[in-house]
């Protein structure tokens, strides 16, 4: 609250970043001055595990790598894709045997192919440079072959956490 008191503007909107579960705007009254605080989005990164295979394994790996800086939740592929589509989560990870069907299909359908990429498919796994570039270019949903989870996730997360 000291932070707010130190501000002299009578009415101000603070671009407020909090890791709240639900987006909400708050109003504080300090010294009879109303401060409206607009929620913009959480700094706490939210990652959803959709796709089909090894969801728990992937969630554990991501939770461990994020070391408390991200909220990881397991959902069905549809619910997970909707979460990213409606900005309730920032990133989607999903695995299946082909890295594109059960892993990513719903995300491609709901979020759009521009935001999705299969970083590993039978016959090809993205190299480190390509993985980092995928994150940098704004991809939000990543599909991969379940066996390649440990090859792609650490690099993707490292780049995501740099953002």
């Amino acid at each position: 609250m000291d932070f707010f008191k130190s501000l002299t503007t009578k009415s101000l909107t603070i671009l407020y970043a909090l890791s709240l579960d639900k987006s909400q705007s708050l109003t504080y009254t300090i010294d009879s001055t109303k401060y409206s605080i607009m929620y913009l989005g959480g700094v706490m990164l939210k990652i959803v595990i959709g796709g089909q295979m090894d969801k728990q394994v992937i969630a554990n790996l991501i939770t461990q790598l994020c070391n408390g800086t991200a909220e990881v939740s397991i959902k069905s592929d549809i619910e997970a894709a909707i979460a990213v589509q409606t900005n309730q989560a920032q990133y989607y990870f999903g695995a299946c045997a082909t890295g594109a069907g059960g892993a990513l299909a719903m995300a491609i359908g709901l979020i759009g192919p521009q935001s999705c990429v299969s970083v590993s498919i039978p016959g090809r796994v993205f190299g480190e440079g390509e993985l980092r570039e995928a994150v940098r270019s704004g991809k939000k949903a990543f599909g991969f072959v379940n066996y390649d989870a440990e090859k792609v996730i650490p690099v993707l997360l490292d780049e995501i956490l740099k953002k």
């Binding site: 082909t98 594109a100 990513l104 299909a105 719903m106 491609i108 359908g109 192919p113 299969s118 599909g143």
Partner: peptide, 17 residues
């Protein structure tokens, strides 16, 4: 046939790709 190719089509229909 490929389940991962199917959802690419709306982007093609809308001329995004």
């Amino acid at each position: 046939f490929h389940d991962g190719l199917r959802p690419m089509f709306p982007a093609y229909f809308n001329k995004v790709i």
